[in-house]
């Protein structure tokens, strides 16, 4: 563990908490893409199956459970509890165009052709594009509530911090994982436009 990864995980946890609070407090999921949340639930489910097969640390296991519970909890709030506030009309990104290429790519480019490894690789590829429906929705509505933009800033920062973690691990531990690094860079690049807007003028209330 290093400070970059710890800050990254905290940023990730913060993003998920901000989202849950936003939906719970405002009792509305307006401006939030349910499709992206579904993709995140698929990402964590496919990646954290090793929760039952390999124990790394209490921290690792607890965080995996928190991320799984929070992502399914968000889906419950969006599609069941506060279903009336879900903005179907603006959440229209075709997620099959994200899932299928990630399935194919994970079968073609992976470290090992085993079920757990393919699922992990699929989750890495899918996570890199999972935010697209949300960014697409923000661009369609032309604005985002301030709390939603803070959520996106924290979520985008988490993988950017992981890139620093990978640089650190390359030099300090002679460790690197090309698949995670390339997907992580793609994921962070997708936020660049949003980061620019967030930092220059806070995209809310545009």
């Amino acid at each position: 563990m290093n400070v970059f990864r710890l800050l990254g995980d905290i940023s990730h946890l913060l993003a998920i908490i901000i989202l849950l609070l936003k939906i719970w407090k405002t009792r509305s999921c307006a401006g939030i893409s349910g499709r992206s949340q579904v993709l995140f639930a698929v990402v964590y489910t496919a990646r954290y199956l090793d929760l039952f097969t390999s124990y790394i640390s209490a921290y690792n296991s607890i965080m995996k459970l928190v991320f799984l519970a929070a992502s399914y909890g968000t889906i419950y709030l969006m599609f069941i509890k506060f279903k009336a506030s879900y903005d179907h009309n603006h959440d229209t990104f075709r997620i099959e165009f994200l899932i299928l290429p990630c399935v194919l790519l994970s079968l073609l480019i992976n470290h090992e052709f085993s079920p757990l490894e393919i699922l992990w690789t699929f989750s890495i590829y899918l996570e890199s594009v999972a935010i697209l429906p949300q960014l697409f929705m923000v661009s369609k509505t032309g604005e985002a509530e301030s709390i939603t933009s803070h959520y996106l800033f924290a979520l985008g920062s988490y993988r950017a911090l992981y890139i620093l973690n990978w640089i650190y691990r390359y030099y300090a531990e002679s460790h690197y994982d090309v698949i995670a690094i390339v997907a992580g860079i793609v994921q962070t690049v997708l936020y660049c436009d949003f980061f620019y807007l967030y930092i220059t003028k806070g995209i809310y209330g545009q």
Binding site: I56, H111, W120, S174, Y176
Partner: peptide, 10 residues
Amino acid sequence: KRTKSAKDEL
């Protein structure tokens, strides 16, 4: 030899 797997990460 550089190790490959990043499975200890979230």
